[in-house]
Each structure stands twice: as structure tokens, then as C-alpha cells.
Design a protein around this nucleic acid. Structure first.
Length: 768
DNA sequence: AGAAGATAGCTTTTT
DNA sequence: GCTATCTTCT
């Protein structure tokens, strides 16, 4: 720890050594931001500040975890610093004092899915048509209001006599009341209510202000109004506030992030020192120049220019694909080409604007036998079976959580149908009691038989509730699984059944791990922890696979080689932003582009297709406007293998030149059977059955252990797969056989009423 | 009550 | 193309 200061550049040193008072650090991409933050915390402790008096706030658990570990690594007392996400920090504050707002400490946390379900209920109860009041849109509106700290009452006032908005206000009011009645908070409430708590209770505010003499905030450009206010409240007494961010990387405006917060910092905190970190340690000069040129197209930004001492590197590689399939092949072939010459799969990331784009790339990676991990899509804690089990825990932990209870009352099937549930709900509503209480009531219209089922369920609930007060989470879970036969109910013969069962076991393992590591292993804390995780939190650098994710998810990560696919108008920038024609939205897309470019250390591949399927329709596409913003001398067109057109091997600066002399241990070792020993059985059945929770490795092997020996192992196809042949159309694989070196598939084509045996498999692609 | 089949509607990004 | 919801059937 002694000599760490000398490892920093002058600007970084200045930020680390800054004493008391507000400090703004503009940290460009790859400029050593995390380093500065962690060293600054270490320095404070070294100077005699009690770690107890420091809080560092991030947006993701991953960032928090990384910072916590790095601080603990450089200074012995580091692990006492409070490092957490906005949401985790606020939840902790609320668990302690939320009774002052009328809620109870064991409140449930509703994710986007939960809150939308509740919202639908509210729209229904207001007797409004969910076509005219689409839950998604209303949810966005309510979220926006909460981010601006606008209460239902204030919103109602602000909309005046507007009929439609008046109804929206009514929905908001009802929604908020229901959350309260359920003793539940949505994500926005977590911040909003913490602000309310601190603003309205002098003693609570005073306590936290005194405690947090030093406040550090990461990614300040992504704070929304509520978070801004929260930071203001926390740091209000000592003003020892250090915020780090990059206005050029503000990409969450649609979610309420206010880029003004960082641009206004000096005005908000008079006497603030501003430091700009502009030296980039990550990318080549070429990549950086291109990124700088892109971002300079934006009006609303603080002036700065990244520079680097790194070499110029190679030009950006541009591929014009025919369609998304060709584009996927380009990605796969380029990766294979580089892999065969010593690159590793972790070197690569494929970034795209929207999750829907992953499919085309996935198909080609599977065909080429390239292992990959997919981020985004359905996440572990959003999976049906995991949410079911968590709903049991929520309902047990928080008996007023009607939403959780309603979710599980007939899962697994207990013969309690929608009619009954609605009768109970209506009864509860009419008598102003919660759903759980209504289970024991004499409700008109419910038959004796059904009432017995309700009563039986109610008894179980009481038993579990009892169990929860004395036993650890994992034991409670086990008991629930036994009592309900939930696992058995999952075993329905569908291809996903096995994965679902595994996911439940995974959750059980999570619970055990939680018990082993948590300081206070209460059920409430377990639910808090699992309620606030994001997909990217599970990113693991060393997984030996290509990473596929959205540009948003990629923020904060870096890769040696980055593909940005779908670099087209109406895809990137998104159709929405183009059609809106508001500079604000296009500027955010441009920032997203800047984020994407600066993820790459060595190489950046950009591809666009001439045509692409969108919403089931084939669309013509034009190259992204951002592509035109990069001058031609920074770029070079490449072929479908990622090689420069007219490539000559002796060319200086090219990869093959040095790869030829040093043989990589992995080079040439690409046979499928030797690489993977235990492919998960669902590996090639498609994304819905794939757990993204752990390393989501993809291997093309149908099955290594339980298939006859003659079945070829190096094929992505297995019996039952739905496939498409370019000439014959859709079909289903009926048999897989080896025919010499070739693979032979027997495929049923229902549309032509024929069964064909095909060898060579040219153009046959798996579909879902 | 529950399953299978048909149709409408929608897709940016996520703590 | 996919999914969530509605409809129809058992």
C-alpha cells in the first residue's frame, strides 16, 4: 500500500489525494476510474478516517463487489467500508426505519414483473381498458414520476382536468395504495421512500449524515432525480462528496437518468474541485480516435478528449453482410480464424442494440461450435420456477403480500382456479382485509369442496410461517418443496422440465451459501439479496467463452476484440430514437455507440446487413449514421472471415505475422469431443431452457454420455430439433447418423409431407 | 378446472 | 418471430 500513489498519473493522484470538500472526477472510458475510487477510499482510511464513516455507492452489485474487494485488498480495515448499490443501501436504511412511513420492516421488494402484475390489477379495478391504458406504458409513466419524487397526489394535481391523465393518476394512486397494503416496495420506491424518510425525519437524516462523513458515488452520470436528492441528503452535512462519472457514458436517460446532474455538479456544490481523467489505458489509438470522433458529434457534453500512449493498432473492420445470417457467420468465422491462431474465446464480445438480435448470432456460433455465454433475456431470478419459490418465501415472510400469495395459491395445481381466486380477492376487497385473512372466511359462491382446499392451503401457510421463525431458509425451502411436491409438478415431460428442476436446486444451493456467508441470515435478508441482483453481476472473466450482450450491459466491461453487430439505421440508432427525431434521443444513442467502441482493447469489428428480419418481416437496412461519422482512413472493409479484402499475409501489424511463430497451447485443438465432457442436456434446445445464472456455456454437443456410440458428437443437431432447410422449409430432426465423415440427418418436412435424409447439411439451420 | 389451440400485439435498453 | 391472452374443448 505504501507505494501505490506513484503508480498513478498526476490527475489520478490529484483525485486520490484531494482532501475535504466536493470533488468531481470526469473519468473517461478506460481511464482508471475504479482505481481512483478504491485508492481514494484507502487513502482516507490511511489518513485516519474511520472506515465506518465512509460510504461508496455504485449502480451494480458487480461494481460494488469489485470495489469492496479491491479496497479490502489494499487496506486492512477496508472491509468495514459500506460499499453497496443505491438499492441495497436504501433497502438497508429502510429496513431499519421504514416504520416511520407506516410500512413494516419486512416489506417485499417487487421487481418489474411483479409490479406490472399489480398494475394490471389496478387498471382492472379502475374499470379501465388495458388497451387504452397499456400496463407497460403506465408503468413507465409511474416510474418516471417516482424518479422525479412526484407523489400520486402531486401527480393528480399536475395533470389538471385532462381525462386520460386523470385516469392515469387514479391508477397511480391505487397502485401506490396497493403496494402499501401489500407492504411492498417497487424498485423506484426503494429510492423514493428513502428520500422521503430522510427528508421528513430530522433525527434519521442527522444520524446518517453524521455517520457518512465521506460519500463517494460511482457512475454519477446515471443518477436520476431521486438518487441525486438522496446523495444530496446523505452528504448534506459535511459535503465531502466525491462523484465519479462520464457524461459521455450516460445511457440510461430513458430510465430517468439525468445527465444534468453531473454537468451541474460545480453549480450545485460551490467550491467543488473538478478533475478530468483523460488518459486511456485500454484501447488502441485508432479505436480511441474513432470513439472521440463519434462522441464529438454530441452538443450536450463537457469538453474533453481521451488520449493514449498505446499503439495505433489496426483499423476498424467493417463487414457488409447480406442478412443477419451472413452477419452471424461473419462473427463466427472471424472468431474461428483468430482462435485457430491463438486468440481465446474470452477475448471476444458480441454487442448488439437489442436482445432480440442475439438469436441470429447464437445460431451461427452453435453451428461453428463456438462456446458462448448469453447475458440478458430471461434471468435466473425472473424464471417462472424461481419466482414461484420466491413467492412462497415472500408470502411467508410478509403475510400481507397478496400478490405473492395469489401467485402460489394454485402452484402447483391445487384445484383452486381463477374463479375462486377472484371470489376470495373480491371478498377481501369488500371487507377490507388482506387475501390471506380471507382464506378462512365463509365466502358465498365457493363450494364446500373448494373451501376445504383453501383451508388446507391456509394451514400449510401457517405451518411454514411457524417454521420460518425457527429454521434457516434452506430448511424452510426444503420443507415447502416436500409439502407441495413442487419439483414433481415441474416434471411435465417438456424439454425444459429438467432445467427448471435444476434451477430450483440452484436456488436451494444459493440459500445454503447465503446461510454460510451472511452476517444475519434472516429470510428477509435473503429475499433482499436475491431481489436486487442483475444478470451482469454474474459475469465471470475467465469462463472461456464468447460473451454476447447488449451494449448497455457491456458498460464497465472490456474485451480484446469487440463485434458490434446490426450497425444500421433503425437498429442502432434504434428505430424509436430515429423516429422521435429528438436530438436528445439520438445523442443518447451516440453515447451508447461511444460506450460500445471503448469496450474494445485491440480490435473493433462493425457489421451491418442489407436486410434483416424485424417483427417477422424482412426489412431493408441502411448502414448506421454513426458509421459515416468515422472517417474512412480509420476503417477497412473485411471479408466474411474478418480478413481485410485483398489480404496479404506478410503485411505488417497483422495478427498472423506473430501468431505464426508462437504456437498457442490451445491452437488447433478445436475438436468438439475433446473440449467438452459434460454438455448440459438442454444445451442446444434454445434460450428458454438455458440457465443464465451460472456460466452459461454453450457447446454444440447433443449429448456425450447417453447417446449410442455411432451418433456423431460434432453436430449441433439432435433428435427433436426444429430445423429449416433453405429449399425444403421447416422440418423436424427424426434421426442423426454418421455417414463416414459426414453427418446425415433424417428430417420430417410437414409442409411438403415428406421425410428426407440429408447429408452435408448445407444451409440447414436450427430454429425454435 | 385445466389443457390445447388460435389470435392479437409487440419488441431498447434494467437497478 | 415470439408471447401473452383469449377461446374452445374435454
Amino acid at each position: 500500500m505504501t507505494d501505490y500513489i506513484s503508480q498513478l498519473n498526476p490527475r489520478q493522484q490529484e483525485a486520490v489525494l484531494h482532501g475535504d470538500g466536493p470533488l468531481l472526477v470526469f473519468a473517461g472510458a478506460g481511464s482508471g476510474k475504479t482505481r481512483v475510487l478504491t485508492y481514494r477510499v484507502a487513502r482516507l482510511i490511511q489518513e485516519g478516517v474511520d472506515p465506518y464513516n465512509i460510504i461508496a455507492i455504485t449502480f451494480t452489485n458487480k461494481a460494488a463487489k469489485e470495489m469492496r474487494e479491491r479496497i479490502a485488498h489494499i487496506t486492512p480495515l477496508g472491509d468495514q467500508v459500506w460499499v453497496s448499490t443505491f438499492h441495497a443501501a436504501c433497502t438497508r436504511i429502510l429496513r431499519r426505519d421504514i416504520h416511520l412511513l407506516g410500512y413494516q420492516s419486512g416489506f417485499s421488494i417487487y421487481d418489474a414483473q411483479d409490479s406490472e402484475r399489480l398494475l394490471k390489477l389496478c387498471i382492472k379495478e379502475e374499470n379501465l381498458d388495458d388497451k387504452q391504458y397499456p400496463p407497460g406504458g403506465i408503468s413507465h409513466t409511474i416510474s418516471a414520476q417516482k424518479n422525479l419524487l412526484v407523489t400520486p397526489e402531486e401527480y393528480e394535481q399536475s395533470v389538471g382536468a385532462d381525462y386520460r391523465l386523470g385516469n392515469v393518476a387514479n391508477i397511480y394512486t391505487r397502485y401506490q395504495r396497493k403496494l402499501f397494503e401489500n407492504n411492498a416496495l417497487d424498485f423506484d420506491d426503494i429510492i423514493m421512500l428513502t428520500v422521503k424518510l430522510l427528508a421528513e425525519n430530522d433525527d434519521v437524516r442527522e444520524r446518517y449524515q453524521r455517520r457518512f462523513r465521506y460519500v463517494l458515488v460511482d457512475e454519477y452520470q446515471d443518477t436520476n432525480q431521486a438518487q441525486y436528492r438522496l446523495v444530496e441528503l446523505l452528504a448534506g452535512k459535511y459535503k465531502n462528496l466525491c462523484v465519479v462519472g462520464d457524461d459521455d457514458q450516460c445511457i440510461y436517460g430513458w430510465r430517468g437518468a439525468n445527465i444534468e446532474n453531473i454537468l451541474r455538479f460545480e453549480a450545485d456544490y460551490p467550491g467543488a474541485r473538478t478533475i478530468k481523467l483523460e488518459q486511456n489505458y485500454r484501447s488502441t489509438q485508432t479505436i480511441l480516435d474513432a470513439a472521440n470522433l463519434i462522441i464529438s458529434g454530441n452538443e450536450q457534453r463537457a469538453e474533453k478528449a481521451l488520449w493514449t500512449e498505446n499503439a495505433a493498432g489496426v483499423p476498424l473492420r467493417i463487414y457488409n453482410a447480406r442478412d443477419e445470417r451472413d452477419e452471424g457467420q461473419f462473427v463466427a468465422q472471424s472468431i474461428t480464424y483468430a482462435y485457430d491462431r491463438g486468440a481465446t474465446y474470452n477475448d471476444f464480445a458480441v454487442l448488439y442494440r437489442g436482445n432480440a438480435q442475439s438469436r441470429a448470432v447464437e445460431e451461427q456460433l452453435i453451428m461453428a461450435g463456438i462456446p458462448y455465454r448469453l447475458f440478458g433475456g430471461v434471468r435466473f431470478y425472473e424464471r417462472m420456477e424461481v419466482k414461484d419459490i420466491l413467492a412462497y418465501l415472500k408470502a411467508i415472510n410478509n403475510p400481507t403480500d397478496d400478490m405473492a400469495l395469489r401467485r402460489i395459491i394454485n402452484v402447483p395445481r391445487r384445484g383452486i382456479g381463477d374463479t375462486t381466486i377472484n371470489r376470495v380477492a373480491n371478498y377481501a376487497y369488500d371487507h377490507q382485509i388482506n387475501f390471506a385473512a380471507a382464506l378462512d372466511a365463509e365466502i358465498p359462491g365457493i363450494t364446500k369442496n373448494t373451501r376445504a382446499k383453501l383451508a388446507e392451503f391456509a394451514i400449510y401457510m401457517k405451518e411454514w410461517h411457524q417454521l420460518a421463525s425457527t429454521n434457516p431458509v434452506a430448511e424452510l425451502l426444503t420443507q415447502i418443496l416436500t409439502d407441495t411436491q413442487y419439483l414433481e409438478s415441474l416434471n411435465d415431460g417438456t424439454p425444459e422440465a429438467q432445467t427448471r428442476i435444476e434451477n430450483v436446486h440452484e436456488l436451494l444451493a444459493k440459500a445454503k451459501e447465503f446461510e454460510a456467508t451472511a452476517q444475519d441470515a434472516s429470510l428477509t435478508n435473503f429475499l433482499t439479496e436475491v431481489g436486487l441482483v442483475a444478470d451482469i453481476d454474474n459475469y465471470d472473466e475467465s469462463a472461456g467463452a464468447v460473451s454476447l450482450m447488449t451494449l448497455h450491459s457491456a458498460k464497465g466491461l472490456e474485451f480484446n476484440r469487440v463485434f458490434i453487430v446490426g450497425f444500421e439505421e433503425y437498429t442502432f440508432p434504434s428505430a424509436r430514437s430515429v423516429l422521435s427525431e429528438t436530438p436528445r434521443e439520438i445523442e443518447e444513442e451516440r453515447r451508447l455507440c461511444y460506450v460500445g467502441f471503448t469496450r474494445a482493447r485491440q480490435r473493433l469489428y462493425l457489421s451491418h446487413a442489407y436486410s434483416r428480419m424485424k417483427n417477422g418481416q424482412r426489412m431493408q437496412c441502411l448502414p448506421s449514421r454513426f458509421l459515416k461519422e468515422v472517417p474512412p482512413h480509420y476503417t477497412e472493409p473485411v471479408n466474411a472471415h474478418g480478413r481485410p479484402k485483398g489480404f496479404v499475409p506478410s503485411r505488417a501489424n497483422d495478427f498472423i505475422a506473430n501468431a505464426a511463430s508462437t504456437s498457442h497451447p490451445m491452437a488447433g485443438n478445436r475438436s468438439f469431443s475433446s473440449r467438452s465432457t459434460s454438455a448440459p442436456p438442454q444445451a442446444s434446445t434454445g434460450r428458454t431452457a438455458r440457465p443464465s445464472f451460472l456460466q452459461d456455456m454453450h457447446t454444440p454437443i447433443a449429448s456425450t454420455s447417453n447417446t449410442p456410440q455411432k451418433t456423431p458428437t460434432n453436430t449441433p443437431f439432435q433428435i427433436g430439433d426444429k430445423v429449416r432447410d433453405p429449399k425444403l422449409g421447416r422440418g423436424m430432426v427424426m434421426a442423426v447418423a454418421a455417414n463416414g465423415a459426414d453427418i446425415e440427418l433424417t428430417i420430417d418436412f410437414p409442409n411438403i409431407g415428406q421425410r428426407k435424409r440429408l447429408a452435408g447439411l448445407f444451409g440447414i439451420m436450427k430454429i425454435e
